[in-house]
């Protein structure tokens, strides 16, 4: 039995104009990444990346996303990410934060990352209720299968 290896790429989306909420759909994200893969690596590159590619998670507040791809194509994908300048109709760029072999490892990384993000942001919020809501929104992490 052959095991199919995947790679999970954790990215942070950095829009040109800083916003609190970034309205980007999983499908739009996947489409723009694949369009750029086709541009830079052609039909062959698209063929290798497209198989097994999926956007697993996208948080519109922390602007963090997880993309899954096959192990053999992760170098094509990660080398395309810095070249992307438009996601849907938003001018933005990707910062690759982590490349992991399992989603659990990515999850652990994101929790640490978001904890750091919270430490920075919570100080700026005055009311206790708002702070509680904010923490809840940031730390919500449900991966649809």
């Amino acid at each position: 039995m052959v095991r199919i290896k995947n790679r999970y790429v954790v990215v942070r989306i950095v829009p040109e104009k800083p916003t609190n909420i970034l309205k980007i759909d999983d499908a739009v994200l996947a489409k723009s990444v694949l369009r750029n893969v086709k541009k830079y690596y052609g039909d062959y590159g698209l063929g290798t990346v497209e198989h097994g590619f999926r956007v697993k998670y996208c948080n519109e507040r922390t602007k963090i996303a997880i993309m899954r791809c096959l192990h053999r194509s992760h170098r094509t994908l990660t080398s395309t990410l810095p070249l992307i300048t438009m996601i849907g109709d938003v001018r933005a760029k990707f910062h690759t934060l982590y490349v992991g072999a399992t989603i659990i490892h990515c999850n652990k990384f994101i929790i640490n990352h978001q904890q750091r993000f919270l430490d920075e942001m919570v100080g700026q919020i005055a009311s206790a209720k708002e702070r509680k809501d904010f923490i809840k929104r940031v730390m919500e992490f449900d991966l649809e299968q």
Binding site: K38, K39, G42, D43, Y44
Partner: peptide
């Protein structure tokens, strides 16, 4: 080459 392997690959 450009069409099948793209701007970098080609």
């Amino acid at each position: 080459l450009q069409s099948f392997f793209g701007e970098i690959g080609g």
